[in-house]
Nucleic acid binder design. Structure first.
Length: 403
DNA sequence: TCTGGGGTCCTAGGACCC
DNA sequence: TCTGGGGTCCTAGGACCC
């Protein structure tokens, strides 16, 4: 994996770039009648909403009825996923024209490391200004950029600067910036964790920073406790990672409240498997672990999973597994109303990476090293681990590999 | 009109192997 | 023969993010 140098004493060189109200902005860009108006994308539930709608209290993930009560004048549009995907690609092209060190986080946000670019492209803030201008002129979308010394702080900064803003957190004022913020600004603090913290009187990041790590671990578990303690003190040594790949591919569907016949359920399941396996094949990924996800009318959830001996992207194999998982969940489904069903395939292996890795299993060391470098550059370190594991399962002789 | 669809990571127990 | 420790993988659930 390409990894940028660890953020050190060189100052604020990490950018977090985040498109504003992404889906809604694409709609406003493509239909002038929507500009300046409250726009809601998605009918049953709000997938995204413009800032004009947010001003009325409309929020992402809010149900459609509630959103319309808060903002009766809103214009509701159907999502156009392919348009968003196109726009995202164009924006990432601008990122990559800025620096090769880009770590995509989702369809609409990424980290950029601009540490080595001061001489040729100017200060990080100048680069961020140019980036915002270019996204606007080349793709027609507003974007907010946070600039800081760490990933976490850059992300917090963009969150504070939204919409259509730019904010740098200078290295000598980090805690001054961070500690007055609400705990919910911390990455990884959602409703449940925020409530736990608030119930103990911890409302600001600074309050969390006063607690010993052990206290946070006792409260939230080992990983979350450590994570939060580190973030509250602005310790985040994670470098930008280029070439991160998806670890699972899935699809799900809401079923509504009325009971569904077994035949209907099977048809829905087959449709989901078909969608997922098509996407796997077009992404050239195959996987071993099939997970069935269910949600019931009381909002409880259940999952059932099975791991196959060999990775596959074939509809038939995944469907057979999915049907078997659905049968094991029959008692649950009989007892409660099923409102959502989903399938995802994880434990993804990468065909191309394996083809590169496996033929070299008996080659001389230097040949092997260069093959591994190719794999690493192209698919990341994890691809090698997966290649070795698969090789072992297939009984191939694999030499010891460097870390 | 109490809820979408796509993901990530962590925890914990049990099976199994050495 | 008995007992224990460590590591990996699988399964299920939960929190969180956009």
């Amino acid at each position: 994996m390409f990894v940028s140098e660890l953020p050190g004493s060189r100052g604020a060189t990490i950018l977090h770039a985040d498109l504003d109200a992404f889906y809604a902005s694409v709609e406003q860009r493509d239909d002038p009648r929507l500009r300046g108006r409250p726009v809601i994308v998605g009918a049953g539930v709000v997938l995204a909403c413009s800032y004009e709608a947010k001003a009325f209290g409309v929020r992402t993930a809010m149900n459609g009825g509630q959103a319309m009560r808060r903002c009766p004048g809103a214009i509701v549009v159907e999502p156009r996923m392919s348009a968003y995907s196109e726009a995202s690609k164009a924006v990432f092209k601008v990122f990559e024209d800025t620096t090769p060190l880009v770590e995509g986080l989702s369809i609409d946000e990424a980290f950029l490391d601009v540490a080595g670019l001061r001489k040729i492209r100017g200060t990080p803030v100048q680069i961020a200004q140019r980036l915002r201008a270019e996204v606007l002129s080349r793709v027609g979308l507003p974007i907010t950029v946070g600039v800081a010394r760490t990933k976490f702080l850059a992300k917090v900064a963009s969150g504070v600067a939204k919409p259509d803003g730019l904010l740098e957190v200078e290295p000598d004022r980090e805690l001054e910036f961070l500690h007055p913020l609400d705990v919910s600004r911390l990455w990884g603090v959602g409703e449940v964790t925020a409530e736990k913290l608030r119930s103990r009187g911890l409302t600001k990041v600074g309050d969390v920073a006063m607690l010993p790590e052990a206290a946070l671990i006792a409260m939230l578990g080992r990983a979350s406790g450590r994570h939060l303690h580190a973030l509250a003190h602005n310790r985040d040594p994670r470098p930008i990672e280029v070439g991160r790949r998806r670890r699972s591919i899935g699809s799900q569907r809401a079923l509504g409240r009325s009971p569904k016949s077994p035949a209907t359920l099977d048809a829905v399941l087959a449709g989901l498997v078909d969608r997922v396996t098509r996407r796997m094949r077009s992404a050239e990924r195959s996987g071993r672990t099939v997970t069935l996800r269910l949600r019931f009318d009381d909002f409880s959830r259940a999952t059932r999973s099975h791991t196959l001996p060999q990775a596959t992207d074939q509809t038939r194999a995944i469907l057979v597994t999915a049907r078997a998982l659905l049968r094991t969940a029959h008692p649950l489904i009989a007892a409660q109303g099923l409102t959502m069903i989903g399938i995802s395939v994880g434990n993804l292996e990468n065909e191309a990476a394996l083809q590169l890795a496996l033929p070299f299993d008996k080659a001389a060391n230097n040949e092997l090293d260069s093959a591994l470098d190719q794999v690493k550059d192209k698919f990341g370190t994890n691809a090698i681990t997966r290649g070795v594991l698969l090789g072992k399962r297939q009984g191939l002789e694999m030499p010891m590999l460097p870390d």
